[in-house]
Design a protein around this nucleic acid. Sequence first.
DNA 1: AATAAATTTAGCTAATAAGCTAAATAGATT
DNA 2: AATCTATTTAGCTTATTAGCTAAATTTATT
Lengths: 122, 122
Amino acid sequence: MLNMDDKIKIFKALGNETRFKIFKNIFTGGYACSIDEKQPKDDMIAQATCVTSIAEHFDFALPTISRHLKELKDAKIITMTKSKNKIYIEPNIETMKEIAGCFNVLVEEYEKGVLFQFDNTK
Amino acid sequence: MLNMDDKIKIFKALGNETRFKIFKNIFTGGYACSIDEKQPKDDMIAQATCVTSIAEHFDFALPTISRHLKELKDAKIITMTKSKNKIYIEPNIETMKEIAGCFNVLVEEYEKGVLFQFDNTK
DNA sequence: AATAAATTTAGCTAATAAGCTAAATAGATT
DNA sequence: AATCTATTTAGCTTATTAGCTAAATTTATT
């Protein structure tokens, strides 16, 4: 369950152009890591990628992308799993489900509330 | 339809503690404006409130809250409608529906994708 | 016409964030 | 053991953001 600070951290992480693009690409694109292509691991899903392969798609220095990824990880938007000398990056779909749920509830509750008020004011 | 910049603006707006609390309160609480209580308008729903009445619930100076509200408005999270010398503030539920839709699609598409890959890797 | 209420604008300061390069660390390969 | 690959840490600069007070603007009330 996400508390308020968790949610704020998630929104802050997504409220930056570079991180949003990284997020979007990890969730919808998924770059294969060069080493994965040589030695695919069947316990890794295809989206799993590494810091360098993500950074290649951006015009920023590697440490900059590394720090953005850390922020996405700290917000639980992605997971970063060390395996040998590489970091495998995957979408954290549980967090997305929770956020989706928050907005769905917000819309549902709001519509309930509006109907209630319409009844009240008439 | 929200484009990428719109979405980033929305997340940036919600990624700040003060704005998140204002957002939360406008959507779930709804403070009545002192003047509304004296002269209720039947074309305004109960959540409609004004800058001062929102600011009363925060320990920040009025101009600070005013600027935060402007940012929520610019992100289309709330609407601000001038009526006489006051601003009526209401949730913009359409934007919330769109954001909810984005996360719902993300989760759905991801799960489709994962299933596809499982089929592929086996 | 003067005052009061609601809100914004302007201009300032301090904190935070985003970028960089250089150096450090950890593991793999030769 | 030396080198290469992947990544992070440190330390720096610049830009942005969040807060403030004071002043301006707009409309309502007396």
